[in-house]
């Protein structure tokens, strides 16, 4: 498939329409000089990735992503940032001087992965076949069955991890009051 053939498919326009902003937003996440902006760019990147999921007919996961990531995780981020008194509008240097080695490492990762993708694709005769029609939404029921049958134990394990994280988070972030302070608190 040549590039011109590829670009002729409208669905690929949609892909580009999401992928390009996504990459740009991701770049801004790691280069922005304001933490809040970085977090908001992450929202953009994640929203685009949710769009890609819909493109890949994984609708449920897309909305899970929106609900959990945008609705909760990023809100938590912003919450945390603001509680630690994010300077409004002020820009600070959020990176340190390891920028170039880091860029080199990242490039290395990309190069190796890209090379691998290429090699494997060629080796296996390519996955270049067009995807079956869009709109073939996976029945959510299949997911549910997967969770409680085949993946029951991982599912429980993940639940356990979440619980542990919850308790851990509370334990870590809680301000320990001295007994005197507790008494004070009880008075009010």
């Amino acid at each position: 498939m040549t590039f011109s053939e590829w670009i002729a498919e409208p669905v690929n326009w949609a892909f580009l329409a999401m992928a390009i902003p996504m990459v740009l937003a991701a770049l801004r996440v790691v280069t922005s000089r304001n933490v809040v902006h970085a977090a908001l760019f992450l929202v953009l990147a994640l929203a685009a990735s949710a769009g890609l999921f819909i493109l890949l007919s994984a609708e449920f996961v897309a909305w899970v992503l929106v609900l959990v990531y945008i609705g909760a995780v990023v809100v938590l981020f912003l919450f945390g940032i603001m509680i630690t008194r994010a300077p409004i509008g002020r820009e600070t240097n959020l990176s340190h001087n390891t920028r170039w080695p880091a860029a080199a490492a990242a490039l290395g990762v990309f190069a190796v992965t890209f090379w691998l993708i290429n090699a494997v694709t060629e080796q296996m005769g390519g996955f270049g076949d067009p995807l079956p029609a869009v709109g073939r939404a996976t029945a959510t029921g299949i997911l549910g069955e997967g969770f409680i049958n085949r993946y029951l134990i991982p599912f429980e394990a993940v639940g356990f991890v979440l619980l542990a994280a919850l308790i851990g988070g509370i334990t870590l972030a809680r301000k320990d009051l001295t007994p005197a302070e507790e008494e004070e608190g009880a008075r009010v």
Partner: peptide, 19 residues
């Protein structure tokens, strides 16, 4: 982060070696 960097580099080398 330096540990992470070492990790990334190490992983890359491993992958390359493996391939």
């Amino acid at each position: 982060q330096q540990y992470a960097g070492a990790f990334v580099v190490g992983a890359l080398l491993l992958v390359v070696a493996f391939v």
